[in-house]
């Protein structure tokens, strides 16, 4: 199942900013330099994890996302560089 859905052409990696609240997605890559990547991973934000959007603040404000039970407030610039696959 998992493999089949991965092969569909519309399942390509897109920025996390395109995810709507309520939708679920799988994290493909984190972007950023090694230091920030490590920091994100230790906060629970890791490749392969399932992410949802809890809230997006207006005026290019930060997001609150949920990664398998951990909620993280994260600036929009960082969110834009995180690539996901919707599921």
């Amino acid at each position: 199942m998992e493999l089949l859905s991965d092969m569909k052409p519309d399942r390509k990696a897109v920025p996390l900013t395109t995810l709507f609240p309520g939708e679920r997605a799988k994290i493909i890559s984190l972007g950023h330099g090694a230091g920030i990547q490590r920091h994100l991973r230790t906060m629970g934000l890791m490749e392969g994890k399932i992410v949802t959007i809890i809230a997006a603040q207006p005026a290019r404000g930060p997001f609150v996302i949920d990664v398998e039970g951990t909620q993280i407030a994260i600036g929009r610039g960082m969110v834009r560089r995180i690539l996901i696959q919707k599921i």
């Binding site: 920091h39 930060p62 609150v64 951990t70 909620q71 993280i72 407030a73 994260i74 600036g75 960082m78």
Partner: peptide, 9 residues
């Protein structure tokens, strides 16, 4: 830098 903060339950 941008905000990066855990929001505990």
């Amino acid at each position: 830098p941008e905000l990066l903060l855990e929001v505990p339950p």
